[in-house]
Simulated scan of single mutants.
Amino acid sequence: MVTAVSVLAGMQASPATAARPLSLFDFFGGGRPRPHRTIHAPKIPLPRPRPAEAPAAKTGKLSAEKPAEGEKPAAEPSPPPAPKPSACRLALTEEIAIAPSIPDIQGPGGCGGSDLVRLDAIVLPDKHRVAVTPPATLRCPTATAIADWVRTDVAPLADKLGSEISGLDNYDSYDCRSFNGIAGAHLSEHGRADALDVHGFKLADGRSIVLTDRDVSRDFRESVLHSVCTRFMTVLGPDSDWYHEEHIHLDLMGRHNNYKICEWDVLDPLPKIAPLMPAARPEEAPPRAVAGKEDGNKGDAAKPQAAEPAAKAAAPPAVPTPKSLKQARRRGR
């Protein structure tokens, strides 16, 4: 204890120690720690400049991980294989129609479909093309049915008109909408790419054949009617409803027991001039003056007989007398 006090006294008396704060090293000896010597980092030599005759360095990004020596780099994953074409797609060749495949459509509310094609033209047996204007987006079976109908039935009918068919007027094909565009109705076959609305045909001589035109040959329109009703499940035209007065709707909608709907009235032409006056009087008819005189005589003879009841009915009622009033009062009691 005496030693510690003496040490403290000595430290207080030292002027060097009074100028700095005390630390544990002052009590237990050793003084303040000596500073370490500065450590100098070794100089790293830089690479020499690239020789001018050296090949140019590649600027492409190197892969983060280099394969080990003798190890082959990992192959990139291959894309999924494309779906195999359907039997319909294989059968619908360019000898029948120009109809390239298009991607499947997945629309809202069940719209769209798979195995779709864009029907650009139909190739007739003589290699002549019938352009579809505008091109129709259809399922492959529907496009095949349209192409076969034009090739087999419509082309011979057009030949009877004295020309060759050169175009099909597409009124509507794929359209994501309800039946007749009515809100809340079920999905139309147009929304499934299963329907085509045909407005008419174009002939090579420049004529246009509108299927709903009354002035077009009735035989031609009736022949088309029988043809489409045989091939398609639904046929709607004039007089089916007012939505189909200007085109013919065709689709392949399946129903129970293969039930078909064929509603298309082939209407007669309207008269050029409406009849305003009655037809001329036949020569064998009696003269108008004689007929009028005879009718007048008959009327005069019948007048006395018909006038009596009329006169009685028009006579004023009799004025009641005081005697008759008294009798009426008695009956009322």
Rank of each mutant, 00 (worst) to 15 (best):
V2G: 07
T3D: 09
A4V: 08
G10P: 02
Q12N: 07
S14V: 11
S14K: 09
P15Y: 05
S23A: 05
S23R: 06
F27W: 12
G29E: 03
G31Y: 12
P33H: 00
H36Y: 15
R37G: 15
T38W: 11
P42D: 02
P42V: 02
K43Q: 13
L46Q: 06
L46W: 07
P47Y: 02
R48L: 04
A52N: 10
E53C: 02
A54K: 12
A56M: 05
A57P: 10
T59I: 03
L62T: 04
P67R: 06
A68F: 01
G70K: 05
E71M: 14
P73A: 04
A75F: 06
P79R: 03
P80R: 03
L90A: 12
A91E: 15
E95L: 10
E95N: 10
I96G: 07
A97P: 04
A99W: 10
A99H: 10
A99D: 05
S101E: 14
I105N: 08
Q106V: 02
G107A: 14
P108L: 03
G109V: 03
P125C: 07
K127M: 14
R129L: 11
P134V: 07
L138G: 01
R139I: 08
A143K: 09
A145L: 08
A145W: 07
R151Y: 00
P156K: 04
L157C: 01
G162D: 05
E164S: 01
G167C: 05
L168C: 01
Y171L: 02
Y174W: 04
Y174L: 09
H190W: 01
R192G: 04
R207I: 09
D213L: 09
S217I: 05
D219L: 15
F220Y: 15
E222T: 13
S223E: 05
S223N: 10
V224M: 05
H226W: 02
T230Y: 06
G237D: 12
G237T: 03
Y243T: 13
H244N: 04
E246V: 09
H247G: 00
I248P: 00
M253V: 14
G254D: 06
H256D: 10
H256C: 02
Y259C: 07
I261E: 13
I261V: 13
D265Q: 12
P269N: 11
P269D: 09
P271A: 04
A274W: 03
A274F: 03
P275T: 10
P278M: 00
P282F: 01
E283W: 04
E284M: 09
P286V: 00
P287D: 13
A291W: 15
K293S: 11
K293D: 12
E294I: 15
E294T: 15
G299W: 08
A302C: 10
A306K: 15
A306T: 08
E308K: 11
A311M: 13
A315S: 02
P316R: 01
T321P: 02
T321K: 04
P322S: 08
K323P: 01
S324D: 06
R329V: 10
R329A: 09
R329E: 10
G332R: 12
